[in-house]
């Protein structure tokens, strides 16, 4: 038992009430330019929701609003049943940013330990957890190198390990697999699903890859071009658990087509 865990267990229990993430008419303008049209969205506990939409439509902005890194211009946000601000202060979510954002002055291992350090974990526990996370993303052998010595894809995997390290009840992931090759990408997808099966983590996931969204998600939210609004929320009724066979399933291809066509509608007004 580590210092961080009781609080997380509690937040997981609270999350049962009214959705882990609930957005009501949330919009964002940067100065006079609207970046995000009013969006309402609910993410049920244990759900895996993907956001898909043209570049610049406000997906990252939406994720940052959930994370309380950006103030919405209008609307209300609750995370784990609380205002976003409180949820952030209670460390209810872990976030993987679009860029890896590692600290060059820390070794890979100590980068993964960073959130645990901030949250006051004891050194031995930090170390053990970081080791496990690094094994999970296949990077245990580079634990003592520093970020500049790793490739972009490896850096991104470190960022994922770091976000998973404190086993948050909610994961916010902004194109986490964008920098990976196809095979590594599929391996990471399987890994993410395995972690989720074990921990029951809720995931809000941004991606540009339609097959990835369909393969991973319990539902796919398709957004229009800037300023982004929700065009459709498409439930993914593929059988669980998702496996290699899922990628060959005719239903998988049907869903991919459906999502693609919805996306097209948003680009051609």
């Amino acid at each position: 038992m580590s210092a961080g865990e009781p609080a997380l267990a509690a937040s997981r229990a609270d999350a049962g009430v009214g959705g882990v993430v609930a957005l009501r008419g949330v919009s964002k303008d940067y100065g006079a330019t609207p970046a995000l049209a009013p969006v309402s969205l609910d993410v049920a506990p244990g759900a895996f929701v993907s956001l898909l939409g043209p570049s610049g439509c406000g997906k990252s902005t939406l994720l940052r609003i959930v994370a309380d890194l950006v103030e919405p211009s209008a609307g209300s946000v609750t995370v784990a049943g609380r205002p976003a601000r409180e949820a952030r202060e209670r460390r209810d979510y872990g976030m993987v940013f679009q860029a890896a954002t590692l600290f060059d002055w820390r070794t890979i291992r100590r980068n993964v330990e960073l959130p645990l350090e901030v949250m006051g974990w004891r050194a031995a526990e930090r170390r053990a957890r970081a080791q496990r996370m690094l094994e999970l993303v296949d990077l245990a052998d580079v634990a003592d190198l520093r970020p500049p010595q790793l490739s972009g894809g490896m850096q991104q995997r470190v960022a994922i390990a770091r976000a998973l390290a404190f086993e948050p009840a909610l994961l916010l992931m902004d194109e986490p697999f964008g920098a990976l090759d196809e095979l590594t990408r599929e391996r990471m997808q399987d890994g993410l699903l395995a972690i989720r099966a074990r921990t029951g983590t809720t995931v809000l996931f941004v991606t540009h890859s339609i097959p990835e969204a369909v393969f991973l998600s319990s539902s796919v939210v398709v957004m229009s071009a800037r300023p982004g609004r929700v065009l459709a929320e498409i439930p993914v009724d593929l059988p669980e658990p998702r496996t290699e066979d899922t990628r060959e399933d005719p239903r998988f291809f049907q869903l991919v087509t459906e999502v693609r066509e919805t996306l097209r509608r948003g680009v051609r007004p």
Binding site: Y93, F97, V118
Partner: peptide
């Protein structure tokens, strides 16, 4: 981006300074 990362951990000002 690094400042945001620490903000997402709700890190106190002192931690942001030293880390």
């Amino acid at each position: 981006s690094s400042q945001e990362l620490l903000r997402s951990y709700a890190a106190p000002g002192r931690t942001v300074l030293t880390a």
